[in-house]
């Protein structure tokens, strides 16, 4: 198959246009965070730093941010432990119902968020009689975060030769010692990647959160959603959006470096 110069050129242009469309809305948000118009009129009638100042002084915003970080940290910690245990069982053992278990991990993320959300809401409040709080959000988030850790660790374990673990046992190491000194060091970057994804997933989640957060608890996405439609607060949402996009470069940078170092290995 030979592609003519013209068709390569056309495909190149289509690619550039697609990327332009992907980045257009994000750049509009960036410009609007300096826009003097509250209705985000385009082109901006003037530029201002007011919204940035307002954002940095907003106590509700800061509280929501710290709630989100706490929830994401808790959910990631639980997901790391459960996901690793599960992937070790599925990668190293054969047992009845293995297929079902691997489907079970994916289910919380495969089913629509609203289904997971109202199912957990009903279970926490009606079945268990709990009050919704930051803990219920954490439990809910951990449930759908397990899969990201599981996928990453599973991929690593299946590529890792069990020889090393067997050699360690032959040399007299117990199971725990083998795990600590042989298996775990090789899982490092997979755990980091899985944990990073879990954190990002939890930090950004809105649907399940809406149904599992108590009335007093506000995560950052809930704060954004509540302030988006208020004319005086909407420009501040732009500022938050810009900060989130800029901060998201950090995990991408680490993920890329990890991928790079693994290719060289």
């Amino acid at each position: 198959m030979r592609l003519s110069r013209t068709s390569k050129w056309i495909l190149g242009v289509v690619t550039i246009v697609t990327l332009a469309i992907i980045y257009l809305p994000l750049s509009v948000v960036l410009v609007n965070s300096f826009n003097t118009s509250k209705n985000m009129a385009w082109p901006p009638p003037g530029l201002t730093l007011d919204w940035w100042q307002k954002a940095s002084n907003s106590s509700g915003l800061m509280a929501a941010l710290s709630t989100s970080v706490m929830v994401a940290l808790g959910a990631t910690a639980i997901a790391l432990v459960l996901g690793t245990l599960l992937s070790m069982a599925l990668a190293r053992y054969k047992f009845f119902g293995k297929q079902a278990v691997s489907l079970l991990v994916v289910l919380p993320i495969a089913l629509p968020g609203i289904v997971t959300g109202i199912a957990l809401n009903n279970a926490f409040r009606t079945v268990l009689g709990w009050n919704l709080s930051i803990v219920t959000i954490m439990v809910a988030h951990a449930t759908f975060c397990i899969v990201t850790v599981y996928n990453n660790v599973m991929a690593r374990l299946t590529r890792m030769h069990p020889n090393l673990e067997e050699a360690s046992a032959d040399l007299g190491a117990g199971l725990w010692t083998t795990f600590r000194l042989v298996t775990f060091p090789q899982l490092g970057s997979a755990l980091f990647a899985g944990g990073l994804l879990a954190f990002a997933l939890s930090f950004d989640e809105i649907v399940v959160t809406t149904f599992t957060a108590g009335s007093g608890v506000q995560t950052l996405p809930i704060w954004i959603l509540e302030n988006m439609f208020r004319p005086n607060q909407a420009p501040v949402v732009n500022v938050v959006a810009v900060v989130l996009v800029v901060v998201s470069v950090i995990p991408i940078y680490f993920a890329q470096r990890l991928a790079g170092s693994e290719q060289r290995r």
Binding site: L26, P221, I224, A241, L244, V245, V249
Partner: peptide
């Protein structure tokens, strides 16, 4: 863009 928030 996957890392940028859904709501954003």
């Amino acid at each position: 863009p996957l890392w940028a928030s859904y709501l954003v």
